[in-house]
C-alpha cells in the first residue's frame, strides 16, 4: 500500500458544504403519534450525520417525553383529509373519523405499519437520540402548565429550560418547528 494507491474519491461523510459546525434545533410541539415521528427521525438522521442536535419539547410535544404518556401516543384521523383506507387510493370519509373505536384502530394500524419498517416506537427512538449524543430539553412553561417536574420526564431529558435558554443554546442552528 502506497499513498499513490489511495482512492481519490472518498465519501463526504458530513454532507456537501458541511464545515463540521452544522447544528440542528427541532421544536416538537405535537403529541400525536404521527407528529412525533418526523422530529425523532430527522433528529436521529442528523445525529447519524454527525450534526449537533437539540430537541425542545413544548406544549403537546411534552407527551413525547412524559414517562406516563410517551408510550401511549395516539393517531387520530379526525381532520386529516389525507387519511386513506388500506384499499388502493380510497380516502376515509371524514364523517367516519370521529366514530368510537376509529382512533384506536387507526393508531394500531399505524404502529403496525411503522414497526414493519423496523422503525422503533418513540421512546426507543428517543433513547437512540440520547445514545448518539443528542440533547433533549423540556419546556419550562409547558412543565408548569401541566404540573410536571424533571422526575416525571424521560431520563434522557437533560433539563427543563425556558425558551430564552433554548434560543441561547441553539445559537447558529438550523431550526425545525413541528
Amino acid at each position: 500500500m502506497t499513498p499513490q494507491d489511495s482512492v481519490p474519491i472518498i465519501p463526504s461523510f458530513g454532507g456537501e458544504g458541511d464545515d463540521g459546525q452544522r447544528k440542528l434545533a427541532i421544536i416538537c410541539s405535537k403529541g400525536n403519534l404521527d407528529m412525533a415521528y418526523p422530529g425523532l427521525i430527522l433528529g436521529a438522521a442528523a445525529l447519524g450525520n454527525g450534526i449537533e442536535t437539540h430537541l425542545f419539547f413544548t406544549f403537546w410535544g411534552f407527551d413525547m417525553i412524559a414517562k406516563t404518556r410517551m408510550a401511549k401516543l395516539k393517531f387520530s384521523p379526525v381532520g386529516n383529509t389525507a387519511m386513506h383506507l388500506p384499499i388502493g387510493d380510497a380516502r376515509m370519509p371524514q364523517a367516519l373519523a370521529p366514530l368510537p373505536g376509529i382512533q384506536a384502530l387507526a393508531t394500531k394500524m399505524m404502529r403496525k405499519q411503522i414497526s414493519e419498517l423496523d422503525v422503533p416506537e418513540p421512546p426507543e427512538l428517543l433513547q437512540q437520540i440520547v445514545d448518539m449524543g443528542g440533547h433533549l430539553w423540556g419546556c419550562r412553561m409547558s412543565a408548569d402548565m401541566m404540573g410536571l417536574t424533571e422526575d416525571d420526564l424521560f431520563d434522557g431529558v437533560e433539563a427543563i429550560i425556558n425558551a430564552d435558554t433554548f434560543i441561547e443554546k441553539t445559537y447558529g442552528a438550523q431550526l425545525l418547528f413541528i
Binding site: P11, F13, G14, G48, N49, G50
Partner: peptide, 8 residues
Amino acid sequence: FPKTPAKK
C-alpha cells in the same frame, strides 16, 4: 466509527 457510523 466516529460521528457518522452507519456511512463509515
